[in-house]
Design a protein around this nucleic acid. Structure first.
Lengths: 358, 358
DNA sequence: GTGAAAGCGCTAACAG
DNA sequence: CTGTTAGCGCTTTCAC
């Protein structure tokens, strides 16, 4: 079967090209009987409009791009980006958008990809993962008024739309949870300090410590890079300082840290308690069930797409800022379930933010 | 800066639209001086051709689609698909193709996506992950002569190009490795039996047992579904049968199985040995370092893209079949390193296929 | 080696 | 409500 055109359908239905176009695009200005008839022809022939022609004529491609810059694409092994991608992809299905995926690994890739996508014709809009290197790109997009939503707070104060989770507040709540459980030497393992997520989670930790009236002890802050390995070695640095609890900026690092604790012959949560960040699927299944901050990643992706479509349809100004809430998921690693077997009391402990007990 | 067109460049360069087009497309029939001049204008103005117009005129979109059907998109949490996607994306960068990502989750998605992509205009070719449900789709693609490469052997004998790893041989080697180490009650935990990977890995297990002159004991075959949980419960079924070694069809399941063993108070590999499949990053970092079959996933994705481009450029017939080799990675869980501290002897044990010792 | 001209298949005024 | 017409920005014969 050759590829049918509007013209073919028009002929077969005995109407003009425009009418068929109207039917295809659900334009209300069509007689109901005519519409029915044309729809029949479309269905029986299996006609589908040519996207390229449609793009060219309407100046809309119904395609958006998800751009994951160099520094994060290595992390594609990390479950975060796949799940984000999943949320984005499913939202695209829902809104009838095609998703273009751009992993920018090398400077080469950057040179080839950026000009292609930042010009009208291929994409209607861009979803850009925040990253240290992406600032220049953000600037040029903002300047050209191209619809763009940044996933994660960008570094500089671009006047750009973005969506993020409330990292500061999430970390703050997690640390307050540890404080209420009675821990007094609370350490933290941070994410990369060149990521806003890393920076904000540390800030939340600091804030909680200060709010408790304590001094922040920089010795209890160990820097990681979100990897299991970095969690492991950060914990090795912390162990001699004898913290009784650790807030870790990602589950992956938390598992590394717990490994270090166990290798040292200590037990979680009896000797040291942990709270992670992400709520990966393994967090609930692992040896030590992890208390952690759940990010609504999939919904986050969906929300990002919706915001982008809003920008495409209604203009990029004013810029939108979406901050999504997180949830503290209480399991074994923080020791709460041991201290408060009576869940009523536990609820009481959690009289801040939203918390779940599994 | 408004979006420039060929016409604009032509005017500025004092030549015709055709000439600029030739320069852009590296057509040799252009005077060298003219070419230089036009290129200068293109660079200084920052011109980039409009992809939609180009697609429409040339009937090529320079875009390929990666289609992950319903039954696998749930598994997007599994590291396999993200890494496959990564390999595909990077290869697309390299060959200047745009990658469209299609996660088919619901029947709805299917209805919306398939007509859009199986018609010329949006994609030049499709990379389709094999799955139980995809057979119909494969048939219609094959029939319409649309360029398609299936990732993983499809179920039926479609005359379609596909790329797969040699699952039978990989499993066979792994089980032979266990046999040579002296184990005599070798069980297996299979993948989904509605996936060709699951079927083939079981076949490789059976073949090795038979080659050893043993009878296959169906009681020692426990079915899983590639998830951690299913590995755990499959192992619980196997434990009473006292196997001394288990070949598991995925690392994820192997970790579940090991968890079951440890909860039963037994030790790996002292009491029971394991070989997994995939070589996930955690395989080398976990508590018990996993002996496993390494799949070259990223290269697999790249190779798939190259094959697809070959089909696009040179026609879909004859169909191509690419089978990629795997590698047995020997670590702690199979007990080889304990039995053969002397690596020379170990090399000797591995005088089949390719094996690595970490 | 270069330019003119005819589409690619669709959308979107505009006229009726 | 419907058809005619003029493009969208590019590639690709076809003359010269």
């Amino acid at each position: 079967m050759p590829n049918l055109t509007l013209e073919d359908i028009a002929k077969q239905a005995g109407v003009s090209r425009s009418t068929v176009s109207r039917v295809v695009n659900n334009n209300p200005n069509v007689n109901e009987n005519v519409r029915k008839h044309v729809q029949d022809v479309i269905i029986t022939t299996g006609y589908h409009p040519n996207p390229a022609a449609r793009s060219l004529a309407s100046q809309r491609s119904w395609m958006i791009g998800l751009v994951l810059p160099r520094s994060v694409s290595n992390f594609f092994i990390d479950p975060y980006f796949p799940r984000l991608t999943q949320g984005v992809a499913l939202a695209c299905n829902q809104y009838n958008y095609t998703l273009g995926l751009f992993l920018v690994e090398t400077k080469e890739d950057e040179k080839r990809i950026f000009p292609r996508i930042s010009r009208k014709g291929l994409l209607d809009g861009i979803l850009l993962q925040t990253a240290p290197m992406s600032d220049n790109f953000i600037d040029s997009l903002v300047e050209s008024d191209f619809p763009v939503v940044v996933a994660g707070r960008p570094f500089n104060n671009h006047d750009v739309s973005y969506i993020d989770v409330d990292n500061i507040n999430a970390a703050n709540q997690a640390v307050h949870h540890l404080i209420r459980l009675g821990y007094t030497r609370i350490a933290t393992i941070t994410g990369r300090m060149n990521s806003t997520a890393g920076i904000d989670r540390l800030e939340g930790y600091r804030k909680a410590i200060r709010e408790q009236g304590w001094d922040v002890d920089d010795g209890l802050i160990a820097e990681g890079d979100f990897s299991e390995k970095s969690g492991y070695s950060a914990m090795q640095h912390l162990l001699p300082l004898k913290p009784d609890a650790v807030f870790v900026a990602s589950d992956t690092m938390a598992f590394g840290a717990i490994r270090a604790v166990q290798e040292a012959g200590l037990h979680v949560p009896n000797d040291i308690s942990f709270i992670g960040f992400d709520d990966l699927p393994i967090a609930a299944q692992s040896d030590v069930k992890l208390t952690t901050v759940r990010q609504p990643i999939v919904q986050f992706g969906a929300r990002a797409v919706e915001t982008l479509i809003d920008l495409i349809d209604n203009g990029t100004k004013p810029t939108r800022r979406i901050i999504m809430d997180t949830e503290l998921v209480i399991r074994d690693s923080c020791g709460a379930l041991q201290k408060y077997v009576d869940k009523t009391k536990l609820e009481n402990v959690n009289n801040y933010g939203s918390a779940l007990i599994y």
